[in-house]
Design a protein around this nucleic acid. Structure first.
Lengths: 341, 341
DNA sequence: CTGTTAGCGCATTCAT
DNA sequence: ATGAATGCGCTAACAG
């Protein structure tokens, strides 16, 4: 790296070398107004020789302090789900020439405002956020400054903002209905600790579908994992070992599905299983799931951000990304005859 | 969203309201020099009332056109491997107050220069790149302008740059040695089309270990998947159906491992299998793999970027991230007696 | 400890 | 079609 670092050329340097004024060079790069083809040539030539690259900072400053970036703040950066979302956002933004600034809160609620603030200082044009703090009211000020705020995967608390969520409730309800249609009535719900909002929505969908099938109290078969130290496996175990074990199980998320599979593998009873969230080897393993497209979640958020940047007005939007039931066998096991009391 | 958007306050607005000069306000926000506690109070108070947020654009411009951002350009944004890398980069950068600008080339080699250029226009302080174009010489100019360039996962072509790669060769060699130690000599190498560099390194490690075990020509057992339309399954099938089938198989990457598993499941012959790249359910499925930490790959790249930003000089660095063999059963199947001719 | 002057690199007036 | 002044918001360099 023995590089003789040369200073960065400016408009003026290019102008001098090309024998024109700075403004003319500026015109070439803004693209808008017309420049004589031959002077343009001379300028581009000079720019190339000087490795000129217009200073976005200065340009943006002059144009009213606006950048072409959107911030995305997520929780645990290792969670593949969030990265799929990030992928979607980036995909959508790049179509419009925007770039994405990415940061994570490391899943620490108290760091959310800090991280968000750091990004807002970069003068982003919009903020996409997976809310993790208890409360997003600290963003109220920024919102009044005209920065569009979009939350993903769950709504913000104490803040008006556009939101993109999965069809958690209806997706889970569909899964449970497919089980009740096969005669199941005793259906376990297992979820390891997960974010409150999505869990409660999925649980609501589960209860609703059971209600429709005539099961009014499903609490005996619910294992909600409020205690993080209890593994999904052990929850499934407790279900199956109970006096009145379920004939089918639905899980509230990816991790719970894996845990359930692990436990069911050690059992001989045929228990139907439908998971929430698809995963890579689910097809090979024949696991039925409520699938969805996390990338689409991101794309929707990206579009929402761009729309708001274009036009700040209009009512708050709530976008729901569809889920769909993928039948791969594990969920298509009929209830044993006589299993319904 | 019926927000009465208020104009953004500037230093001067705050100064006026607090009854001081702009510079004093500036001092409060730069933090460096001392300001009388009571004036500081007044200023912070005024700032809060005006929802003041220092304009990073202007600040950076004034301070020499430098931002606190690093660009990361990756190929296919849906590839979880790259996102793990991104996670590592972000993790490391955020420690030093830098943020990451993220963009993807959508795996289209011809778009790499375009995407890179867009990010460089944002005046990033360093560029981390997963090279995908045939040639990175187009970055020579930027390098001379002092922008550190770090490539990840594979070296750049025709460009001097710091590089972080996996220990592809030694990792694969270790896996193959563990098989030869169990008596295997006929070991298949299967890889679906993957990036040239990593594949050739892993192949080299495979060949080297076989050489050590006295197998000088392994080509009959190599299935390199240069044709994207040929699935790993079919390659494994062709191996097992050959006149002299292998007693063990190593795969060149994640996808090939899954494919191999799929095919081996349909077979009765006990064939040892070791995959390259770990995956979520490998443990549950008992698949031995050459594991590595993609996040660490990113962290190393992030550190390298920060080092170079601090100090541009010094020799080009090549960092190799270790891999390790995880024995879960599938690779610990001894060769059948008499399988060595 | 605080204020004044100047200018970062560029684009928006208004000229010519 | 091109050029000259002016200022975006902020901070370095100097005052005082």
């Amino acid at each position: 790296m023995e590089i003789p670092i040369q200073p960065r050329a400016t408009l003026h340097d290019v102008a001098r070398l090309a024998g024109v004024s700075a403004k003319t060079v500026s015109r070439v790069y803004s693209g808008s107004s017309r420049v004589l083809p031959e002077t343009r040539e001379r300028i581009l030539d000079a720019a190339k020789r000087l490795r000129f690259r217009p200073n976005t900072l200065a340009r943006n400053l002059r144009q009213g302090g606006k950048t072409a970036t959107v911030a995305f703040v997520m929780g645990d950066i290792r969670n593949p789900f969030y990265f799929q979302v990030a992928a979607g956002i980036e995909q959508e933004l790049s179509k419009s020439g925007f770039t994405m600034l990415l940061a994570s809160t490391g899943d620490a609620p108290e760091s959310e405002p800090v991280v968000v603030d750091a990004l807002l200082n970069q003068l982003v044009r919009a903020l996409v956020l997976i809310p993790i703090a208890a409360d997003q009211s600290y963003l109220e000020g920024e919102r009044h400054l005209g920065t569009p705020i979009i939350t993903v995967d769950r709504p913000a608390n104490d803040l008006i903002a556009d939101t993109v969520v999965l069809a958690n409730r209806s997706g889970m309800a569909e899964a449970v209905r497919s089980l009740t249609a096969l005669g199941h009535r005793k259906i376990g719900f297992v979820s390891n600790p997960s974010e409150m909002y999505t869990l409660s929505e999925r649980l609501a969908g589960y209860r609703q579908a059971l209600m429709e099938a005539g099961v009014s109290d499903s609490t005996p078969w619910e294992r909600l994992g409020n205690d993080p130290s209890i593994s999904p496996e052990s929850q499934v175990r407790s279900l199956l070992d109970s006096i009145d074990p379920p004939t089918a199980i639905v899980t509230g998320n990816n991790r719970a599905t894996t845990g359930a599979m692990r436990e069911l593998r050690t059992r001989s009873e045929p228990v139907a299983l439908i998971g929430f969230d698809d995963f890579e080897l689910a097809e090979m393993l024949g696991i039925s799931v409520v699938a969805h497209d996390p990338v689409e979640l991101g794309r929707a958020a990206g579009r929402l951000a761009l729309e708001r940047i274009e036009n700040h007005d209009g009512p708050t939007k709530l976008v729901e990304i569809p889920t769909w039931l993928v039948k791969r066998g594990s969920g298509e096991i009929a209830a044993p005859v006589g299993s319904v009391d």
